[in-house]
Amino acid sequence: MRIVIALDTHSYSEAIVSEAAKLAANTWADITMLGVQPSSSGDMPDTDLEKRLRQYRKSFLSRFNEGDNPYGGVKGAGKFTSQNGGFLLTGDDKENEFRKKLHVKIRVGDATKEILAEAREQECDLIIIGCTKGLDCQWQGEIDLPRKIAQKADYSVLVIKERKTTDTISCCLDQDQVSQSSLEMINQMVTLHQAELKIVGLTDSLKAGGKEGVENKMAEILKYYADLELNPWIKLVRLEDLEEYVAQASRQGMIALWMGKKSLLGKIFSRDLVGKLVNTSQSSVMILR
């Protein structure tokens, strides 16, 4: 599993490091901690961003006990060296010494484009990004960046709302294709937060047969999680009731949305709904692809 954690210098980014570390500890994922600085900032790494990324790395590694730490690569402070137009934190140690990679990188350019480019290059499974608390979900100085990432990424995206605990994870499904990795990701999130799991089937009452396809997949998912003793709650929601349901569910916890290629939501609403969900949700949002 590969995870890209998109970070800037603000408190919502600091807040997601511990959550990312917990997920990494359970999945032993390869991690890239990514910061982006504008092209106008010169040929050297931005001092503030560099300092913050070092702190985030230290904070990330501090979540592991000495014996359990699967990460390494750079011992001590290391230094940012130029690489492919950006900067990579490097040290003297050989990377292969450790089983899993923890890269700290700075890319140069437009933040949205560079985060998406890094995810593509890494062929990552998940992008994790933080955002401001409250009814809006923003990065400072980058209008609607979390929304754009969630909309445009070809990979799963976890948008973590600052200072919002996750008691419930409501996973919305409107298609009969769900990847094993997304099921496992939800399992990890439920375990990490000790949260209640809800599987919400979206039914298109206009299309005969759609409901049955979703129900069959929900039956498989129920069995998968029941075998893991998670016992999810099951609910069917009509497409026209989704917005109201999401507004209510986001007050209680995280919303996850399976948005595969066959997703009705993807077909009917393009990716606008995803953006709206990210922007208006009062909780963290996970887009599963």
């Binding site: 089937g201 129900e215 609910k235 069917l236 929601v237 009509r238």
Partner: peptide, 12 residues
């Protein structure tokens, strides 16, 4: 003495 059947919880 009892009739049991499954019926999914819906939003409507």
């Amino acid at each position: 003495d009892l009739f049991i059947e499954g019926n999914l919880n819906t939003s409507d």
